[in-house]
Design a protein around this nucleic acid. Structure first.
Lengths: 214, 214
DNA sequence: CGTGGCGTCACCCCTTTGGGTGATAGGTGA
DNA sequence: TCACCTATCACCCAAAGGGGTGACGCCACG
């Protein structure tokens, strides 16, 4: 494979569920010399399909989309095409989102409020073989996230149930464990999130994108 | 004033803090016969200024923007120009956002995941003097909201403090009232939000856009 | 084979929370 | 003026939450 030589046109796949945003990204890219949009997709599944068909040089991908989200799409694409270069373009700079995107193999993580030139130059950078490079703001969030201890699977389960408004007793029975065990998980959960109680835990989890509402 | 005759070009102001989205909206509108973008703004303050300068027929406005948000901008614009026609274009279909937008005088509330034709046709509809008409999905949310009892000012205060993770005692001292009064407000708050406890209240408030994080 | 992380559970104990009831005072509007 | 809403506060009580400590089995990793 390798990657195309300089002078070649960069073939981009645009993935976003908002039609006007897709339109803007297409316009943005087509305005750039040496860049072209070869396909569009409006959700994760479509992105995977289309990627297979057109084999773009770069996929510019939104994260939050109905049905299959960006992270799953990136994972699926990179499983079949390990050298796929995906750049995430998100509305949110939530540390957990950034972390998940980079973990799944995204080459960069841009925000929609960034200037169009930054988007274009990142596409070029990644196409030219540039290694993962994040905007300062995004990189800062990522280190924020790294300062937070990882949650275990069970802690996540409890956290998700908590956000559904369940009491300890209800969490216990829904997870088939004792209430004392729930409390035990909560204790470590609070410590890891640096909060004092479940309400703060819920808000922090939402704020950082650790769990998504709906 | 009145509004321009048919055959005239519809002069649109585009307000959004995301450059590529702005690009898409501009492209979208310029592609429409009889429509043109006469100015752009990237936040509320700028929108108010620019509106004054260009007096567009329609302002297409995002809600969540850094600094002054869409609602405040709409209020300010309509204060000076009571016949201003503002259409909100938001990412979110949160009932409280919709309610606030319509209350503040927006003529419609569209979502960014809607097809571009719907955006164009709504602009035309509003320009032609059409009264507030909302997409089904948005209208449904709005009736959802109307089924929920209004919160009083004090209840909002308590709710906001609650979401900051404060205990009843802390809320009491921060609002300079007794803890019993806080509890009293919480009781009615829970009833109005149809929840059992503070954690649920926090999540529901965030979910419905009653309070915004950060 | 030991060490450490994870998940499980059981106590104890105190604080916080939330439900019920009711009272007072100011303000609004019919 | 009277009714109603809001904000304020008090008191009682039961339930839920949260901190501390310790323990046991399992499993992966060095």
């Amino acid at each position: 494979m390798g990657h195309p030589k300089p002078g070649t046109t960069i073939r981009v796949l645009v993935v976003d569920d908002h039609p006007p945003m897709r339109m803007g990204l297409v316009a943005l890219i087509k305005n750039q010399p040496g860049m072209d949009v070869v396909a569009e997709a409006s959700d994760g599944e479509e992105a995977i399909e289309v990627y297979d068909d057109v084999r773009p040089d770069i996929a510019l991908m939104d994260l939050r989309m109905p049905g299959m989200g960006g992270v799953e799409a990136i994972l699926a694409i990179r499983k079949k095409h390990p050298d796929a270069r995906v750049i995430v373009l998100s509305t949110y700079d939530l540390d957990e989102d950034i972390h998940r995107a980079i973990q799944s193999g995204a080459k960069s993580y841009l925000l929609k409020d960034m200037p169009t030139e930054e988007i274009a130059s990142t596409i070029r950078w990644v196409f030219d073989g540039g290694d993962t490079s994040l905007p300062r703001q995004v990189a800062e969030r990522l280190t924020e996230r790294s300062r937070r201890e990882q949650l275990t699977e069970r802690e996540r389960d409890v956290l998700e149930a908590l956000i559904k408004g369940r009491s300890n007793k209800e969490i216990a029975s829904s997870l088939c464990i004792s209430e004392d065990t729930v409390k035990s998980h909560l204790k470590t959960l609070f410590a890891k999130l640096h909060v004092r109680d479940r309400t703060e835990a819920a808000v922090e989890a939402i704020r950082h994108g650790i769990v998504h509402l709906k």
